[in-house]
Simulated scan of single mutants.
Amino acid sequence: MNRLTLMLVVLLGAAFGAGGMWLAERAAPGKLGAADQAQVEQVVHDYVLANPELIPQAMQKLQERESGRAVAANRSRVETPYAGAVMGNPNGDVTLVEFFDYNCGYCRASLPTIDRLVKSDPKLRVVFRELPILAEESRDAARASLAAAKQGRFAAFHEALYAGGQVSAQSIAAAARQTGVDLSKIPDDADTEIAGNLQLAAKLGISGTPAWVVGDKLLSGALPFDRMQEAIAEVRAARN
């Protein structure tokens, strides 16, 4: 069986779960005779041509599975906040993690959703991870935000900086003054924390902001409240 056909069998396996994987395992090279292999190739070939939508569906399932494994392997690093970069219940039973950039309009648009989630769910902990990837000013804002986290003023600074519009040296300084953050005390490990977040995002397959981790799921974009609430509920349900 050629490699392309085997890949298609595996993709069908991912799309159809246990039954499909049974087929994939039995279609591996050396497991079937030539006639049987030719038959499987023809079945897969015909089915994929008749149902081409299966390929992106299967690829998505495989991607979700791989991201879930990456999250599980790095859970402690993902869910452990930097100093006070956390909102909600610090001892909550479910942790929602946001990778964000202060220059990201979708991150700004997600603020009301996060606020609503925290207010409606007293057992939710939200951890924020700096991911300054959009502009040089994003890194300056991230370093200031880490200073705010160290000084116990993260939530206030976070909201004030987003409310200040376009990120600049002036808007960062204004948010710091408004919230009592001393920008002369940028943590010595700020750049190390940012570099670690960038490496962590690469491991998880994160390429943009906002990106969310809840349980073993990786979600992307400015998601509606109901979708976020559903993902949190799924984590709790899986533990029961």
Rank of each mutant, 00 (worst) to 15 (best):
D101E: 10
A83H: 13
A149S: 12
R116S: 15
D121C: 08
D93R: 11
Q151C: 09
D93S: 14
G92M: 06
E98W: 07
R108N: 13
Y106R: 08
C107M: 10
G180M: 12
Y102Q: 01
F99K: 02
L146E: 03
A149Q: 03
C107G: 04
D93F: 02
C107R: 03
I114N: 06
A83G: 05
V118P: 07
S120M: 13
C107V: 08
A83I: 10
P112A: 13
D115N: 14
V97L: 05
L183D: 09
Q178K: 15
P122D: 04
H158F: 11
E98T: 14
Q151S: 09
V86L: 14
K185F: 02
E137S: 14
P90A: 03
A160H: 00
A156W: 05
L161D: 02
A147W: 01
G164L: 09
A144C: 08
Q151W: 06
L111G: 06
Q166E: 14
A135N: 09
A142V: 05
E130G: 02
F99T: 03
R177Q: 15
S120H: 13
R177M: 12
A135R: 12
A142T: 06
R177G: 06
A163M: 04
C104S: 14
T179Q: 10
L131K: 04
G84F: 04
L183N: 08
I186Y: 03
T179Y: 03
P132R: 00
D101C: 08
F128H: 13
A160E: 03
T179K: 07
S120W: 07
A135E: 10
A144H: 01
D140W: 08
Y106D: 09
A83K: 15
G165W: 01
A155W: 00
A85C: 14
K119G: 10
E98Y: 08
F154D: 00
G105R: 11
Q166R: 15
A155Q: 10
A147L: 04
M87G: 10
D182N: 15
A142Y: 02
G165A: 01
L134V: 06
A173F: 01
K185W: 05
R177V: 13
G92V: 03
S110V: 10
R108Y: 13
F157R: 00
A155G: 02
R116P: 08
A148I: 06
A83R: 15
E130I: 01
A148S: 12
E136P: 06
S138T: 07
A176E: 01
D121E: 11
G164M: 09
P187Q: 02
M87D: 11
L117V: 11
H158M: 07
F100P: 11
T179N: 09
R129I: 00
Y102H: 06
R108C: 07
P112M: 14
L134F: 06
V118M: 09
R139N: 11
A160P: 00
D182H: 10
R139Q: 14
P132H: 00
S171H: 05
V127M: 08
P112N: 12
D115V: 11
E137L: 12
V97C: 07
D115R: 14
A169W: 01
I172T: 03
G88F: 05
A142F: 04
L111E: 14
G164K: 14
L146W: 03
L96E: 03
C104F: 07
L96W: 09
F100D: 07
Y102W: 04
S138C: 10
M87I: 11
